[in-house]
Design a protein around this nucleic acid. Sequence first.
DNA 1: TCATATAATTGTAATTAATACACTATATAT
DNA 2: ATATATAGTGTATTAATTACAATTATATGA
Lengths: 221, 221
Amino acid sequence: MTLNDYPKPSVTTDIVIFTIQDDDLKLLLVKRGLEPFKGKWAIPGGFVRLNESLQEAAKRELEEETGVKDVYLEQLYTFGDLKRDPRGRVITVSYMALVNSDKIKLISATDVSDTQWFSMKKLPELAFDHKKILEYALKRLRWKFEYTTVAFSMLPEKFTISQIQKIYEIVFNKEFDKRNFAKKLLYLNILKEHGINKNVSHRPPMLYSLKPNIGEIIEII
Amino acid sequence: MTLNDYPKPSVTTDIVIFTIQDDDLKLLLVKRGLEPFKGKWAIPGGFVRLNESLQEAAKRELEEETGVKDVYLEQLYTFGDLKRDPRGRVITVSYMALVNSDKIKLISATDVSDTQWFSMKKLPELAFDHKKILEYALKRLRWKFEYTTVAFSMLPEKFTISQIQKIYEIVFNKEFDKRNFAKKLLYLNILKEHGINKNVSHRPPMLYSLKPNIGEIIEII
DNA sequence: TCATATAATTGTAATTAATACACTATATAT
DNA sequence: ATATATAGTGTATTAATTACAATTATATGA
């Protein structure tokens, strides 16, 4: 029984890339130039090469599409239904990436291309089973926001409590009480003060950074 | 760019099959008859065929190994490191199955074979990266016990509160307070009374079953 | 039948966590 | 000086979790 006794499926990685821009949760999509689903928008992805791990393949695709490195990247789920790709048997390992909006601004300038950020509120029809992948990703994103510190990967290194609360409100699509939010967050003891930001025309906010080595707080799944 | 422009990895499913036997969390392992890792114990698994989905492949392997159908089965994580299989590039989609100890008793009779149940407390050295897969599975199992009703899939249809508490204690490897456990469980309103079991030499316990359509209570991940 | 063994069943007080809710502080702009 | 804009903060209520032990129902053996 050698490896070549079995016909092999193709394996791809597809990456759900989230960022927060203009107070909105956005998703990077690419317009397909070829069949199948030519002209439809799709989650970026591609074939896994034999000399790279799944994570490396996802990272490579991510960098090719966005130019950014060092982003939060996590595997989601592997989709392997028979008919998910009309070209043949293609199994895709889906990933989720969270990109800092700062770094993104550089890229979003290149706008009239076949790679675009879409608001999660106004998504086009998607190719393949990408709608399903995206639904899964959004669930996971919210779960991760609730139980870990991944949210901070979408902020600049120094940030205010208001900024954090804002991205939570965007991701959960609801408002939180300022006092309770701050209380809970500060109680966790994961933030380090960094002096106040004086360049605002109102009471200047305290700047914080995530304490080093905090990671994701909990590391399940 | 067709599918055949890329060399393809092999894809397998590996299934971490848990059950509870003799008040102990057990895991089904198979002894490898061939290289690589000949003689070592491994999580059951095998190649995904082109005419079956990942879930179907896992279900087939599970049935081949244990003979049982209709078990709880969930995808865990996909492992795709370059060197995880010395034969070449093999990506494995791992699954976790929870098997009712009742149904299992039939199979565990066939014991002196190359398929055996091992206590999680006394595991042999495992082939491939199966130790990593198993560690992941145990985390997931505990998480699922905490947040869903999968535990009931390891019990007969009718069960007592004590039986449930027992399997929780086994899985978490710690004891829980009887009063608080029962309070919390009954408060969930997911159990249906089924009369009392009179065949015991002590106060007879109430039998319960899971209300129909309860599912997993929460369905994230 | 009476005593014993065994596990089932049940409640309350204390602590901790989550929620609801509104005013004061500090900077810039005019 | 006043207006504007956002930051920062506290307390009371409710809900959830935890800690903790006596009583009950049945079978068995004396």
